[in-house]
Design a protein around this nucleic acid. Structure first.
Length: 293
DNA sequence: CCGCGGGCCTGAGAGC
DNA sequence: TGCTCTCAGGCCCGCG
């Protein structure tokens, strides 16, 4: 599931449990994730303090006192749970009730503040890696990543030039993490709908005529920022719910305008179109053929 | 170099 | 009820 807004929501949920506290014990219950966990995974974490928990694209990045960065990716089905070691158990003890572990709980962080942070991932497309902080920007997974869509560096000129010469569809280009970081199948569909641009349009056509203000790229950049901000806000609301219900972090209810709404009326004001589902580069695309051009 | 399709995994839901 | 089939919000890799 998780695209930028979900990962950001997870980050905000985990930060209070992890920042400023140490890994007292780390359980790697299942190491064969998308990539195997490093052999010395637990050892390299235990005793270290989490200086800060950040995000880049769809990656969570925990800065450790050792100088390492713990890179975490949720893949398609990853999520985190937070529990308290003290609840119904001896405070400060490492072990928690077996019955509390669920299927696919692959990694458990026992934090020195008593928080139990559990990574769950049925499909195991997620992964964790460790790399020295000074090597992070040069890391193969980080190096080619495009700008943060909510940052100032991401603007119409930048997006248009990144798409220049691209033969692929606008849909595929926006999902390409090298062009812009953090968008996935859902938010690409949602942003294109808000910008009234067709997912089938060739990416290169995003650029306007020379020296003219680029209205298409401008509209698209604004739509991307808007849809991500709205979703993060919706995630914040669900985070408060999670605190009450002890649910997992990472998935929240959100209203989509086109995603998974094939056959439904287009929500654009005054548009009489019907949302259509097509397949592009092996993935579902939802859009309105009437108001997206 | 570029763009596409296959593959990695498990689970949910539809259809029979 | 149970089987089979399709599909799922990500991303690396190999092929043409």
């Amino acid at each position: 599931m998780p695209e930028l807004p979900e990962v950001e929501t997870v980050r905000r949920g985990l930060a209070p449990a992890m920042e400023g506290t140490r890994f007292a014990k780390v359980e790697a219950r299942r190491g064969d994730l998308r990539w195997p966990l490093p052999k010395d995974f637990a050892k390299r974490l235990e005793g270290n303090k989490v200086e800060g928990l950040g995000r880049r694209g769809k990656y969570l990045l925990a800065d450790l006192s050792s100088g390492d960065v713990l890179m975490m990716h949720l893949g398609m089905s990853g999520s985190f749970h937070i529990a308290r070691a003290g609840d119904k158990e001896t405070p400060g003890q490492f072990h928690h009730e077996r019955s509390k572990l669920r299927a696919h709980d692959h990694v458990v962080f026992h934090m020195s503040n008593g928080a139990l942070v559990t990574f769950n991932d049925p499909r195991r497309f997620g992964f964790m890696k460790l790399t020295p902080r000074r090597d992070l920007d040069a890391h193969p997974l980080m190096k080619a990543m495009g700008p943060e869509p909510l940052g100032n560096a991401f603007d119409a000129a930048m997006l248009a030039s990144a798409c220049a010469g691209k033969k692929t569809s606008l849909k595929a280009a926006l999902g390409d993490q090298k062009i812009v970081a953090g968008l996935g199948n859902i938010y690409v569909c949602e942003a294109l709908h808000r910008a009234h641009l067709s997912p089938k349009r060739r990416a290169a056509t995003l650029a306007g005529r020379k020296d003219e203000p680029n209205e298409r790229a401008q509209a698209l950049v604004e739509a991307i920022k808007r849809v991500l901000k709205d979703a993060i806000e919706a995630g914040g609301a669900s985070l408060r719910d999670h605190r009450r219900t002890d649910g997992g972090l990472g998935y929240f209810q959100h209203h989509f305008r086109v995603y998974d709404r094939a056959g439904k009326p287009c929500p654009t004001r005054g548009c009489k179109g019907t949302i259509k589902r097509i397949v592009q580069t092996g993935r579902s695309t939802f859009y309105c053929p009437v108001c997206q051009k």
